[in-house]
Design a protein around this nucleic acid. Structure first.
Length: 942
RNA sequence: GGGCUUGUAGCUCAGUUGGUUAGAGCGCACGACUGAUAAUCGUGAGGUCGAAAGUUCAACUCUUUCCAGGCCCA
């Protein structure tokens, strides 16, 4: 007789194999068909608000793992909040203006660019950006991210472009703008400013000169130097910048020496004396007269070698010992370091060079002469004056920036730029630093980082000499004497209105009079002719006002956004630009909380590199392994640090996924004949082991909810693995198997277990839906006989901690019993090695218990008590158990003190139905080869 | 070079205010089962906590230095 058909074996349509690449798109279609996102919004329309704001990725290229990490994290948050009843949504956006797109397009149109109008170019850039947005949008959608993808924002939307201008107007109205000078890379052959990305470093032969600057300082108490001329020695490769020299920088930490050499007194860093002598070919011995710290001469002066001007001596950490003299020629108009330290000391950003690389009136002696000529002329001049320390004609080969277009060397040259002042009347830095304290920064160190950056940041240069961006809405009086700028909120708003209608092309479509009115007169000189500003705004300003352009449609100016969630690089970028603009115009931060994640690295911890091909591109990954794996990967990693991505890591994630999936599958497969409404067993009526599992599940809920609340998603992954593998699959499931299969379908013990399994499947589907959205939905849809099933798991509420299911004593006791089970297992393993037994049920066990542990908790009689098999045997999954009071030498000691165990092959015969060994097997003629329990069950169910 | 930050078993992570033989899951090795089966179960071997020095009765946990990464600047 084959008893197999009489068993309640698992049955489910929930497949073991997920086949994610094929099934995910179907799920996406399903969600789309039922309009799940809108339903979520509708469901919570009366819920508490949680306002989230998506930071716009740059609209260029395929998405990479950084995007994936970011978007999936946001999706976790949005889904969790939605399932918790919050009224929350996400409007995805893109950053569209800016250099990368401009360069991409320029590469395609090449020389045609010169013949094209600004409007035509803008149209091209806009087209390109649109294709990029479409491309990225598709890829984001594939991630299973919930959003209304028809409602997104782009910084190039006309409405958005207009709003940028309005925010600029507000800043202008606050007086938080000024025009100043700043050095930029400049190609005097193309007559244009260049961005960092347009510069190529190539070998170049430069001058190399050591120049003496006469010091105006008496070293007190140094007799030998009294009344002597002392010179600071600087080294430079650009003699043409000497006319713009405004100072000399010393490192405050270095030691400097006054040396006597060839009857001259020279100053340089002590550690560089020898190398300078060698490089400048200075022979003869020198004598160190005096040593001093770099700080000594701070704020003293030298005389410029050939211009009637003082050069200020300053202290700066940028001075190194790598080359030169340790005394650094500083020309704020021609170098970034120079500019920064010059700003600090209040130096003029002096630039006597025009757009074509020729000296201007500001260096009359060489007016109209090209700086390349100037190099030579100045070298000779200084040599003749005797301020050149080396012999003229010395040259050096080194890497030097060149223009990527024309290949000529570029220069650093101060040009007029627009700035937002960091100090000044608005005291922006002070106020921002205070406001930073009112924001919650996660992780904590994030606050220190933004704080440090704000504390030390220079004025924000918001102008760019480019085309693809928001024109700075300013006009200039064309009277050359006047040049007065028109910075008027009303007029700026007119510009904004025109952008709202036509986009930024309006700036080029319209004459100044269109905005100013025909009769507008210069407030300064009464002039009537004006020209438009040519510069555009820094794109960080674009995205920096997104809270205004995107969110204030839905909320008031005073309402803050609950959360920004971006990579840690945004401390310099979006977090900061948003904070600063909002502080000026609204006097508060735009956000309440800022959550930061790290970067995605390759398996070796180094950055992902397209060149090295040290990773699988996302598209291919998704098409072969599925998004769900990526979602679980995001959850598994502690995103607050850098995360790693590699095949071994992914393989581990897949294992975890399979474990989870199979665990859920097992639960589902034993529910085919279960209906929670009809067959539920109340917690109080459950068997202790089932109660224990309910407790475990309950505490799992609690910890998972806490993890969501704290944005610690990797803890969810950790808890999930622990629960599935350790508590369910290998422990609870293996024990309940016997009851599930063997008992009569409707037996109370079995129904109790099914109640637990139902709770597992149901709770897990809901709790993990924000993370494993695809699989959670699949589980939910696969729960059999569920009345009032919602259309989607996402329309369910998250389960919460049930305070009445909280039995610490039970949990502790079970922990001890599991330890005993482990010891028994070890003994059984020995028998298995000896081939005495195969499966556990082939064995019987005798146990001498320690005084403090017993199995009483399993033996409480009640409706769940199993009459046929000892509860302990069931628990240990052996055929027979005997608890003894004394143990002879045949017992083995275990690692638990006082616990002694004896294992042996089970007595009697194996029941064909339940595989348990029993001395009374085959006693019932109606059901041959069955144990008494099975015979009885068979009688009941036939 | 500077600011911030990371470094616990092969992988991903736990590790409470410094306190007994440092944990989990996966992987690996070996084995069992064949009624979760391209599954499941068991046993076992793997870290001295990036390195060194210091504080302390006691440090993965505090301090300093160094090494190797990362983000942002320069």
């Amino acid at each position: 007789m084959d008893y197999k058909d009489s068993l309640n074996l698992p049955k489910t349509g929930f497949k073991m194999k997920a086949n994610l690449p094929v099934n995910e798109p179907k799920k996406l279609q399903f969600w789309n068909d039922i309009n799940i996102y809108q339903k979520l919004i509708d469901k919570n329309k009366n819920g508490e608000k949680f306002i989230f704001h998506d930071g716009p990725p740059y609209a260029n290229g395929d998405i990479h793992y950084g995007h994936i990490l970011n978007k999936i994290l946001k999706d976790f948050v949005i889904k969790y909040k939605n399932m918790s009843g919050y009224q929350t949504k996400i409007i995805n956006g893109w950053d569209c203006h800016g250099l990368p797109i401009e360069l991409q397009v320029d590469k395609k149109i090449k020389k045609k660019k010169r013949e094209m109008t600004k409007q035509q170019l803008i149209e091209k850039y806009r087209e390109y950006a649109t294709t990029q947005v479409t491309n990225q949008k598709e890829q984001f959608q594939r991630l299973g991210v919930f959003s209304d993808w028809d409602i997104t924002y782009k910084t190039m939307d006309f409405q958005y472009e207009a709003q940028i201008v309005r925010e600029f107007g507000k800043i202008a109205a606050k007086g938080a703008l000024y025009k100043g000078k700043k050095p930029v890379h400049w190609c005097s052959s193309c007559v244009t400013a260049l961005a960092e990305a347009e510069i190529e470093h190539e070998e170049h032969t430069s001058f190399s000169i050591y120049v003496k600057f006469k010091l105006n300082y008496e070293f007190e108490g140094v007799e030998e130097l009294k009344g002597k001329d002392i010179f600071m020695v600087i080294w430079t490769t650009t003699p043409w910048t000497i006319p713009a020299n405004m100072g000399i920088s010393l490192n405050p930490k270095f030691e400097y020496s006054v040396i006597e050499l060839n009857n001259e007194y020279l100053i340089m860093a002590s550690d560089l004396i020898e190398s300078v002598k060698a490089d400048a070919e200075l022979e003869n011995k020198h004598k160190v007269i005096h040593k001093f710290k770099g700080t000594l001469l701070d704020n003293e002066t030298c005389d410029h070698p050939f211009i009637d001007r003082k050069s200020l001596i300053m202290n700066g950490d940028h001075v190194t010992l790598e080359a030169g003299t340790g005394c650094v020629h500083t020309a704020p108009g021609h170098g970034m370091d120079d500019y920064i330290i010059g700003n600090k000391y209040g130096l003029d950003v002096f630039n006597p060079v025009d757009n074509y690389g020729k000296y201007t009136d500001d260096f009359p002696e060489m007016k109209g002469i090209k700086i390349s000529e100037g190099n030579k002329l100045l070298e000779t001049k200084m040599h003749e004056m005797g301020v050149l320390l080396n012999k003229p004609g010395k040259r050096i080969r080194h890497a030097y920036p060149h223009c990527w277009r024309c290949g000529n060397p570029v220069i650093f040259r101060a040009t007029k730029q627009w700035f937002i002042p960091m100090n000044g009347e608005l005291k922006l830095i002070d106020r921002t630093l205070k406001e930073i304290k009112n924001v919650e920064w996660i992780p904590k160190w994030s606050e220190g980082r933004i704080n440090g950056m704000i504390e030390n940041r220079p004025d924000w240069c918001i102008s760019r000499q480019r085309t693809w961006g928001i024109p700075i809405p300013v006009f200039y009086c064309e009277n050359e004497e006047c040049e007065q700028e028109v910075l008027d909120t009303e007029i700026i708003n007119k510009v904004a209105d025109s952008f709202e209608r036509e986009g930024i092309a309006a700036w080029y479509n319209n004459e100044p009079s269109f905005y100013l009115g025909e009769n507008y007169k210069c407030k300064k000189c009464g002039g009537t002719h004006f020209r438009k500003e040519k510069d555009i705004l820094d794109v960080w300003f674009d995205s920096g006002v997104s809270y205004a352009a995107v969110m204030e449609n839905m909320q008031s100016e005073t309402e803050k956004i609950d959360l920004y969630l971006e990579g840690s690089d945004q401390h310099r970028g979006w977090f900061q630009s948003s904070l600063l603009t909002s502080m000026i115009t609204r006097d508060h931060a735009p956000y309440k909380k800022v959550l930061t994640h790290g970067f995605v690295m390759a398996a070796d911890g180094k950055k992902l590199s397209k060149k090295l091909k040290n990773y699988d591109p996302p598209k291919r990954f998704i098409n072969t392994q599925g998004v769900e794996i990526l979602r679980l990967w995001v959850a598994a990693e502690d995103y607050r640090n850098d995360t790693r991505f590699g095949q071994e890591i992914i393989n581990r994630i897949k294992e975890a996924y399979r474990k989870f999936r199979n665990t859920m599958r097992y639960a589902l497969s034993n529910l085919s004949d279960f209906n929670i409404t009809k067959n539920e067993v109340k917690y109080d009526d459950m068997h202790p082991l089932d109660k224990w599992t309910m407790n475990k599940l309950n505490s799992f809920k609690k910890r998972v909810i806490e993890a969501y609340e704290n944005y610690e998603f990797h803890m969810i992954y950790y808890y999930m693995n622990e629960l599935c593998a350790a508590d369910l699959s290998s422990f609870y499931f293996s024990i309940i198997k016997d009851t599930l299969y063997v008992e009569a379908p409707d037996s109370p013990r079995r129904r109790g277990i099914q109640t637990v399994l139902f709770n597992i499947a149901d709770s897990m589907a809901k709790l993990l839906a924000p993370v494993m959205s695809f699989t959670a939905e699949e589980i939910y849809q696969s729960i059999p006989n569920l009345e009032n099933k919602k259309e989607s798991v996402f329309l369910e509420e998250l389960p919460t901690f049930n305070t009445s299911i909280h039995d610490n004593e039970l949990l502790d006791t079970m922990t001890n019993l599991r330890k005993i089970k482990e010891e028994v297992q070890k003994e059984l393993e020995k028998m298995r090695k000896e081939k005495t037994i195969g499966q556990n049920l082939d064995a019987r066990v005798e146990i001498l218990l320690p005084k403090n542990i017993n199995f009483d908790i399993l033996l409480q009689k009640g409706p769940q008590f199993n009459e046929y098999l000892s509860e302990i045997a069931l628990f240990l999954i052996v055929s027979d158990v005997k608890i003894v009071n004394t143990a002879d030498s045949s017992f083995v000691n275990t690692e638990i003190e006082g616990l002694k165990i004896k294992v042996a092959k089970a007595e009697g015969e194996k029941c064909e139905r339940c595989w348990t060994w029993h001395v009374d097997t085959n006693k019932d003629a109606n059901f041959p080869n069955t144990c008494p329990r099975c015979a009885s069950v068979m009688k009941e169910i036939s």
